[in-house]
């Protein structure tokens, strides 16, 4: 069974204290779980439910509803490209094209070495610096194909030797 590290457990208990009702800590604890395990597996949901003493379905309903909780392991570098109005006016699709051409992945997919995954995302609230994307928790703006190439190269160099990716590519959530 999946266990939180002691440090995360302490953090979780402190978080629970802040709320008038334990269940309010479900989302904060799912964030902690994702930070620790990289994604939200069924075991992670169970670990959160046990810490909060709530039924696991209460956790599952929440993790299923919110877009940020990964239902599959993302790549080490998760690229989230805004494709909303201002970003698409200023070239978001050319950014996604570059990713398809050079990394061979479409929204919802991960490179075979597990290094990069990509997802289309909705407005990031920085339309004045379009096109924009997140790489994990860093915001990158005024993107061009060259700038993206440099960002990807930099991360390739920083990354430790590749491990095989734990799951196959899955279909995008897009309708």
């Amino acid at each position: 069974m999946l266990q939180f590290s002691d440090a995360t457990r302490q953090q979780a208990l402190a978080l629970i204290e802040k709320y008038p009702r334990k269940s309010a800590a479900i989302i904060p604890l799912l964030h902690l779980a994702q930070k620790e395990f990289g994604w939200i597996s069924e075991e992670a949901e169970l670990a959160v439910a046990q810490l909060l003493d709530v039924p696991v379905v209460s956790v599952r309903e929440v993790s299923g509803f919110y877009f940020m909780f990964h239902k599959h392991p993302p790549g080490r570098y998760h690229l989230q490209v805004c494709h909303n109005i201002s970003c698409s006016l200023l070239g978001a699709e050319t950014i996604l094209d570059w990713i398809r051409e050079h990394l061979g992945i479409e929204s919802g997919q991960t490179t075979p070495d597990g290094l990069f995954s990509v997802e289309r995302m909705e407005c990031l609230a920085c339309c004045d610096r379009a096109p924009a994307m997140l790489i994990n928790d860093e915001l990158h703006v005024h993107l061009t194909r060259d700038k993206l190439a440099a960002l990807v190269e930099e991360r390739r160099r920083q990354a430790p030797p590749p491990e095989p990716h734990p799951t196959d590519n899955h279909e995008s959530m897009e309708t």
Partner: peptide
Amino acid sequence: LDVIVHMGAGAYICGEETALLNSLEGWKG
């Protein structure tokens, strides 16, 4: 006065005030 930052998890609907309340309480939005 205690001020607590509560992070959402990627759902535009949670900007609607009553969805925000449900989300804060630990439900889907």
